[in-house]
């Protein structure tokens, strides 16, 4: 028996060794990025990572000498509006596909499914021309209007809405509620977990979007954070690594905090999405 215990202890030690080693490998880019954000650029460029000149100078520089707060603000506005638009339009179209009966329903649903097969990256030329013709270039709306709805969101909510218990719908019918009331008072509250999941996906999707914003924004007034870092990097600040690392840290820390708080939702949402 003692032998087996000993073997288990050895095995556990090995497991922890591997777990810690891999954690270090994954976290090294964070450690280095965040640590160097506290060091003077002169020391960083000399490769002197063990410098003791730790300060918040780079953060103060980033906030005062670069438009990073403006970029963050722009991104939050665009991502928030996109998220609410997705929640509204996707849940409405999902409702139609689940609870309404209309002509060519299958055809329209097939259209939605086909939409999911088409990469938006392939549509940039005509979409650029459309947005230009609508006079939206270099405005928030250039980033918001083309992605007000999502076929994936509709599909995901449709899968969820189909699980709404029929008793709920029947009770609503008996009470004489119309479709708007059923949608608002029965279906949306019942599927709130799926709505939260879609909201998180949509927000993160807009937050991370890179190619489309770089095409349609030209000034700091509308530039979003993902493109903003490129802008900082390409300007005179190119070699100011301390400040660039500080900007990256400013962006990444809030999202990681949100992620840790929302991890439970993400995990259940991901599994749901993966299995369905």
């Amino acid at each position: 028996m003692a032998n087996i215990d000993e073997r288990n202890v050895l095995k556990n030690i090995f497991s922890y060794f591997l777990l810690i080693l891999l954690a270090v490998v994954i976290l090294v880019p964070f450690f280095i990025g965040i640590w160097t954000s506290f060091l003077p650029t002169a020391d960083i460029l000399k490769g002197n990572y063990f410098s003791t000149n730790i300060s918040l100078t780079n953060y103060i520089d980033a906030f005062t000498n670069t438009p990073i707060l403006r970029y963050l603000g722009n991104t939050i506005v665009v991502a928030t509006i996109t998220m609410f638009a997705h929640l509204l339009f996707c849940s409405m179209s999902a409702y139609a596909f689940v609870f309404l009966d209309f002509k060519y329903k299958k055809f329209f649903f097939a259209l939605f499914m086909i939409t999911m097969m088409l990469p938006s990256e392939a549509a940039i030329i005509p979409n650029f021309q459309t947005v230009k013709a609508l006079g939206l270039l270099d405005h928030y709306s250039a980033m918001i209007v083309p992605s007000l709805t999502s076929a994936f969101g509709t599909f995901m909510l449709r899968q969820s809405f189909m699980q709404t218990p029929k008793e709920l719908k029947e009770a609503a019918d008996i009470e004489g509620l119309n479709h708007f009331q059923i949608f608002w008072k029965v279906v949306l509250p019942y599927n709130r977990i799926s709505l939260i999941t879609l909201g998180a996906y949509s927000f993160l999707g807009a937050w991370n979007s890179y190619l489309w914003p770089i095409l349609v924004t030209f000034s700091n007034n509308s530039r979003v954070i993902q493109n903003g870092l490129k802008q900082l990097q390409s300007e005179e600040t190119f070699n100011n690594w301390g400040m660039i690392q500080a900007s990256a840290a400013i962006i990444v820390i809030p999202t990681i905090l949100v992620l840790f708080i929302g991890q439970h939702y993400f995990k259940s949402g991901l599994n749901e999405g993966a299995v369905k």
Partner: peptide, 20 residues
């Protein structure tokens, strides 16, 4: 710890690794 890179966006990943 292993799930932490989920919170990393394109530009942050690029900057961290560009420096490495």
């Amino acid at each position: 710890l292993y799930s932490v890179t989920m919170g990393v966006s394109v530009s942050v990943a690029a900057i961290f690794w560009l420096f490495i």
